[in-house]
Design a binder for these strands. Sequence first.
DNA 1: GAAGTAAATTTAGACTCAATATAAATATAG
DNA 2: CTATATTTATATTGAGTCTAAATTTACTTC
Lengths: 404, 404
Amino acid sequence: MPELVPATPQLLRRVSAGAVLEFMRASAAVTVTDVMAATGLTRATTIAVCEDLVRRRWIVELENQREFGGYQKGRPARRFELNERAGVVLGMDIGYSKVTVVVSDLRGTTLGRSSRPFQAKDVGSGERIAFIDAVAAAALRSAGMDPGQVLAVCAGVAAPVDRHGDVVATQEFWGLFDLGLRPALKATRGWTVLLENDANLAALGDRWQGAAAGIDDVVVILASERLGSGIMEGGRLVHGTRGSAGELAYLDLVEGVGDTYGIAHLARTWAAEALAASAPTTLRAFGPGRVEAEQVFSAAAEGDAVALGILERLADRMARVVGTVATMLNPELVVIGGGVADSAGVLLAPITERLKEYTATPARVAVSPLGDSIVTVGAVRCALDYVERNSLDLELAAPTPADG
Amino acid sequence: MPELVPATPQLLRRVSAGAVLEFMRASAAVTVTDVMAATGLTRATTIAVCEDLVRRRWIVELENQREFGGYQKGRPARRFELNERAGVVLGMDIGYSKVTVVVSDLRGTTLGRSSRPFQAKDVGSGERIAFIDAVAAAALRSAGMDPGQVLAVCAGVAAPVDRHGDVVATQEFWGLFDLGLRPALKATRGWTVLLENDANLAALGDRWQGAAAGIDDVVVILASERLGSGIMEGGRLVHGTRGSAGELAYLDLVEGVGDTYGIAHLARTWAAEALAASAPTTLRAFGPGRVEAEQVFSAAAEGDAVALGILERLADRMARVVGTVATMLNPELVVIGGGVADSAGVLLAPITERLKEYTATPARVAVSPLGDSIVTVGAVRCALDYVERNSLDLELAAPTPADG
DNA sequence: GAAGTAAATTTAGACTCAATATAAATATAG
DNA sequence: CTATATTTATATTGAGTCTAAATTTACTTC
C-alpha cells in the first residue's frame, strides 16, 4: 500500500515536526540548539516547529530557563519538554479469570491501575465489556484522570490476533475473546482500542523494560500454565497470516517435550505424582492438597531431592523448547516470562547448560524481571507506539481549566 | 536508525519522483494523466518530474504517441515508459560445485545466463572469486551487455547471512563462503554486491514468480539434498540476529524426522537400502549403482510397491517438517522448492493429507514451479529490489553512442 | 557600563506544489 | 471547410517550506 497522499509543502513540516517530536520523546528538557543538532534543521525552522508543537500541546515551554544545567554564557536558551500530560494510554490484560488495567502517561510512567477477578464461566458473555469498562474506569479514577484524556488503549488477550488487530477465531474457544470490545469502546468512550495477543505483548513489554531491553531479535516464552511465545524480529512483532505465529503446539512432536504445559503446571503435577508415589520429600508438608510451584522451588532451594529432580526435568524440557525455537528463528536472546519467572531464575543455569546439547550455537537465555505484569507493560508500550506513530493526527482533549 | 537528512524542499521532489517511478515500474507506457491519477500530483508537477526522470534516463518518452490505446479524442498525450535498458542486474547462485549467473533487465526479463561446474575441493580458495567473475563475464557476453551496465549484483550462498549482507561464520564450514566477494567485485568492477542465504533467495524468488506470488507470509523449504528454509513474514525476509533463521536443525529432535536430509538424498538412500535387503522392485533395473530420486518417483508412478513405500515415508516426514514450521510461524503457504520439486508434485496430496494429523489449522502447501532456478530468480529479485529502493541515488552509465 | 557570548529574529533566496488561465492539437458535427 | 468539444500542454501566480546569512536581543562577567 503506497502512500496515496501527494507530496505537498505541508508534508515537509510534518516530517520536520515528526523528527523534532521523536527527539523530544527520547530527551528531557531540551534547547533549540539541542534539537538543531539532533535533527539537522536550522534554528529558524526548529523554532517554528517547536512553537507549532506547543500550540498543539504536544510539548510545553519551560519558564525557569536558567535553572537547568548550571551557568551558561550568552543569551539564555528557551527550553522545551514533552508534555507528558497531553494525555494517557491504557494497557489491559484480559485473562480468563482476571482483568487488569494500567494507566500510563506518555513517558510510560504508571499513574494508576486496577485489577479484578472475573468469573471464568462468563468469559464470552456480553457483560464482559461492561466489566472491562468498569475496571478501566476504576484505574482512571485511581490515576486521577478523565476518560477524555485517553489517547489509545491496548488490550492483550490469550487468542491469536492478526496484524490488523482482529481476533482470529481458528478454534471456537478463541472466539470467546472476540468481544466486540473495539467497536463498543469506540462508541461509548470514543477510545481507539488495539487488540494484541498476550505473548506478543509480553515480547513488546520485555523488550521495553525487561531483560531484552533494546534487543531487536528476541523470543519471549510465557511459561507459567501453558507455553506460548511472542516473536520479535528486527524490532517488529511476527504475527503470521492469521495471528498464530509463536504458537508452540508443534512441541507435541518434539522428543522429551510432548505437550505445551507450562512450568507452574508441571511443577504442581509432578509434585503431586511424587506425593502419590510416596516419595520421601519435604513437599509433603504442603499437602495433602495441591502443592504450588513456588513451594517446589523453595523446597529445591532447601536441598529436597524430589524437588531438585523436578527442576532437573523442567530444565531439560525448557532447554528443548528454547533450543527448537532458537534454531528456527535465531534470536539474540530467549526470555522466559510470566508469573512463574519470579521463581524460575534458578532454572537459568541448567537450561543454558543443557541447551548446548541441542543447538550448535546456543542462544542467550534470560528470565524476565517483569513477572506477572509483563503483559500490561507490553500493552502500554503498544498503545504508546500507536500514539507516537499517529501523534500528528491525533486530537488532544481541550485543556482543563486548571491547566491554564 | 532514523533518517538524519533534514526535510528540505528538494526532499519533496524526491518523494514525488519516487512515487512516479514506482508507478511506472508497475505499468507499461503511460500518459501524464495516468500518472496524475495514480499519484495525486497535478499535471504541472507530473510533467516536471517526468522530464526530470527522462533527463536522468530512468524513463523514456515514446515517439509514436497515437499508436497506443486506439482512438482518443483531444490533443495527443505524450507517453512515457520505464527505460528497461537503463541497466541490468546480475543474480548469482554460488553452490558448492556450481556457479550460475543470470543477467536480467530492470523489468526482470532474463537477457542471458551462464553456469559452470566448480571443483568442490577449491571452495574456499582465492581463485573462486576469479572463477565467479569469469562466469559473470560470460553471462554478460551472452546477454550482449557491458560490465559497466550492471547496477547491482545479488549472490546466493549456502551459509547464514545476516540482514546487513555479511556471511556469519558460526561454523568453520560457513567461513568458506565468506569469499571477500563484495570488496573484490567493488574494487575491480565497481559493482555493488549483495550477499544473501540461498534459501532466503528461494523465498524471494518463489514469491515473485513462483507458487507464492503475492503472498506476504510464506515459508519456502529447499528440500533436495538437505533441508533448509527461507521465511517471509509480512513481505519481508526473516533473518534472525546472525542470519541463521530458517535453519531446520531442530528437526533432530522431532519424532519421525530426526535429521535434516532432503527428499532427493533420502529417496536415494532408501532405494539403496531396499536393494540391499533384496526387496522385489523394478528399481533394481537402475542398479547395482546409485538409484536417482527421479527414478524412484517414476517407478512409483508405474506402481512399484517399494517406490510407493518410499514416497509414503517421504510424505509423512515432510508433513512433520511442514507441520512444525507452519505451527511456529503461521504462514499462509508453505512451498517446497529446489531441483527435486519438479518431480515432487505427487507428494503434495499425501503431505496435505497427513498434515491434518499434525496441525489444528493446516497451512496450504505447494510445490514451486521454479525448479533449479529458484535461487537465481530470487537473486535477481533481490538485486532489483535494491535498485528500486536506491534508484534515485544510483548513477546510470553514460549512454552508448548507439543509444543516441 | 562595556565586552563577550549564545540565542532569537529578520531578511533574502530557492525550491516545491496547487490553482488558474491560456494555448495547442485533435475528433466530430454540421 | 469551419465551429465546437475534448483533451493535453504550458505559463503565471501564490502559498508554504526550507537554508543561509545578517542582525538584534538578552544575559553574564569584568
